[in-house]
Amino acid sequence: MSEATATRVPASPLGTGTAATPARRNWVPYALLLPGLLWLTVFFVLPMITLGSQSLQEGNVDEGFVFTGNVGIYADAFSRYWPHMVRSLSYAGLATVLALLLGYPLAYFIAQKAGRWKNVVLVLVIAPFFTSFLIRTLAWKTILSDNWVVTQWAQQLGITDVLQAVGLTSTDSLLFSPFAVVMGLTYNFLPFMILPLYASLERLDPRLLEAAGDLYATPIQAFRRVTWPLSLPGVVAGTLLTFIPASGDFINARLLGNTQTTMIGSVIDSQFLRVLDYPLAAALSFVLLVVIVTLVALYVRKAGTEELL
């Protein structure tokens, strides 16, 4: 019977600390920040500056690039490649939604119901990471190929017709279509959705659900009013961790898609490595960055979890 619980009041934000804490302690938090800041400077800020300056250069590989402050490249990049941008964002968005729909029940099960199997199932979720991204994506090429059961079943069950009707495929095969790309993205980024969801659902106190039931909430209402809002930080983190890398991905589109499914990541990749138009590639990278940051900011605000930013 501790007395502490009874007197637990929130610490006053005013008048505590400064007087009691020796002043020399104040630099400690900053010292702890230092390694991270250094890391970010070397591997994030400097490359960004380089990329920024590169985007404003003109020239070619043979004669070299010179800085000309050519801001017009941005308008050019955007007007030429906005369909790829939109396509990337919609594929990534679709994959994120699918991953959420698949991942949420699974994460809920692992966190609340799996009992002693919890760790086993978690390892299974992460298991695909033991093989390379490329191999896993190539495996989907087999899975979705025309002479495999998946496609045959989908054809028999009329799923291919539905997919064609909504424009996710253009023939009655599954491979080399937007559908295949979205499936690949969903599959590859699913663990990034599940793990944060799991972390937040794991902390959910089942007694809160009992309390909701006790207070006349049906299971659906209890989910809507208690489980879902309490898992929102996990939902936000999971969707960001899925959406952001998925929108910049180019492997899935290249291996599972066709010429009509090229994503912005592919464009940047080929501009950098094949066309060797560095300024355009850099500008595209920047545009993608700005678009994603804007979307994420809007999204996070809407979800009401400002602490994440």
Partner: peptide, 10 residues
Amino acid sequence: NTVFQSYALF
């Protein structure tokens, strides 16, 4: 209705 030992406030 129940007043839970742990309170179980949302």
